[in-house]
Amino acid sequence: MSVYLDYNATTPVLTEIADLVYKMMVDDFGNAGSRTHEYGVKAKKAVETARQQVADVVGADKTEVIFTSGATESNNIAILGLRDYAEQTGKKHIITSRIEHKAVLEPVEHLESFGFEVSYLDVDASGLVNPRQLQSLLRKETVLVSVMHINNETGCIQPLAELCEVLKDHDAYLHVDAAQSFGKFRHDLTNSRIDLISASGHKIYAPKGIGALIMRRRGYDKVPLKPISFGGGQERGLRPGTLAAPLVAGFGLACEIAAKSWEQWLSDASSIKESLKLALVPFNAVIHGDNTSPFVMNFSIPGVNSEALMVTLKGIAAVSNGSACTSASYTPSHVLTAMGLSSELIAGSVRMSWGVGVKELPIDDIVRTIKTLQG
């Protein structure tokens, strides 16, 4: 069995989380919306416990958390849910970056078709946006700035604190896609200037199909989001449908574990990354991006094609060459393209990502495989 090194795509579910989800499915299976019997009351209690656990990760109030199916749905609600407010106020300008996940870029493009204007923050080979460019792009009619925290392909950590500083005297809403950082980077997301945070359970050892949108109030004012789907009025009317209480509870427990373990996770991941960096030195590997997460490394090796490397590594390590959401398209990575990398480097790029459960990498086997391909 190969070592799984695609944690940025999805993480394994921790045993204690799987046990809780199973118990909720088999024993405490009530509908959290049913309040006339103990089954529903138990499910409701589990949901509210989880809501607090999620809120605690970023220092939010539990009433500011709504559960969704994952970061993609959270992104869509955060972006498309502002449409009515934007049209009513005449603020129809959005700022985002060229390296966002498609779950941000496509909703933004959808709003463009309704007359919204979009400005894009550029990146260079560092993979980082420039806060000064954000300052230059801001207008009085800017309604939303959406910038991811950690890039899913390169692991580049965006300068959130500096972006918040630029926005401190502007009333544009700031949305952060935190799919790759929620629960792993404890302090960056606690900045009260961040209005909207998207999170995904399956990136922090909870099941797929559960996530959250955190909507911070400004004083007593809520972010003026409107629902983008209808029927039932659950989650404060923003996300209708029966809550998947077992998944919600699992996500909550994952957040509680992360709150206790994040420092150890960072330390362990940093050691693993350093071992990979050292192993790749003899091959003149090009590591893409600056200020990157310790949980991932995106690199190219001169003369080695990524597809060939991934195929040859089968049985040794499960790796990828970009976003799992677009891996079937075989088009060049829009992230690496935006960074200005050459077609050769893009064609050779490989992403390895790790987390809990990975104690060490199969370095010897990886080195041997690269040698056979590099000739």
Results as ranks from 00 to 15, higher is better:
M297G: 03
A244F: 13
I257D: 00
A254E: 07
V296D: 08
V304L: 04
I316C: 00
P302D: 08
V304R: 04
T331Q: 13
L276P: 02
C325Q: 15
G303D: 11
C325Y: 15
I272F: 09
S306V: 00
A269S: 13
R239D: 11
F251G: 00
K260Y: 03
S300H: 10
G241H: 12
G250L: 01
L266M: 14
N321C: 12
S323A: 13
V311F: 08
K260C: 05
P282K: 00
S270N: 14
E263A: 13
V296H: 02
M310Q: 08
G315N: 06
A308M: 08
H288N: 10
L309A: 05
L313M: 07
A249H: 04
F295L: 12
A249Y: 04
S300A: 15
M297L: 12
L280E: 06
L247Y: 10
S329M: 15
D290N: 11
N284A: 10
E307N: 13
N291G: 12
K277Y: 08
E307F: 09
I316W: 01
A318E: 11
A279Q: 05
T331M: 12
K273L: 06
N284G: 07
W262D: 08
T312A: 15
S306N: 08
I257Y: 00
V311Q: 07
A285V: 11
P246K: 09
E274I: 04
P302Y: 07
E263D: 08
T292R: 07
S275R: 13
T326V: 09
N284D: 12
T292N: 04
V281R: 07
P282V: 01
P282L: 02
E256D: 15
P246R: 10
S275T: 14
A269R: 09
M297K: 05
L266G: 13
G303W: 06
N305A: 15
A308W: 03
K260F: 06
F283E: 04
A308N: 10
A258D: 04
E256I: 07
K260V: 05
S306E: 01
K314G: 07
G250F: 00
S271Q: 14
S300C: 11
E307Y: 11
F251I: 01
M297P: 02
M310C: 06
I272V: 12
F295W: 08
V296S: 13
Q264I: 12
S320D: 06
P246G: 09
Y330P: 03
L266Y: 14
L280P: 04
T242A: 14
F299Q: 00
A328K: 03
N291I: 04
I301N: 01
L276M: 10
A279L: 08
E256C: 08
E263F: 07
C255F: 01
L313E: 01
K273A: 04
G315A: 01
I287A: 07
P282F: 00
C325R: 15
W265L: 14
D268A: 15
A258P: 02
I287P: 04
A249W: 01
P240N: 09
A244M: 14
L276V: 10
K314L: 10
L309E: 03
D268Y: 09
I301Q: 01
S271R: 15
E256T: 12
P246T: 09
P246H: 10
T312V: 07
S306R: 02
A244V: 11
S323Y: 05
L313G: 00
L278S: 14
L247I: 05
Y330S: 14
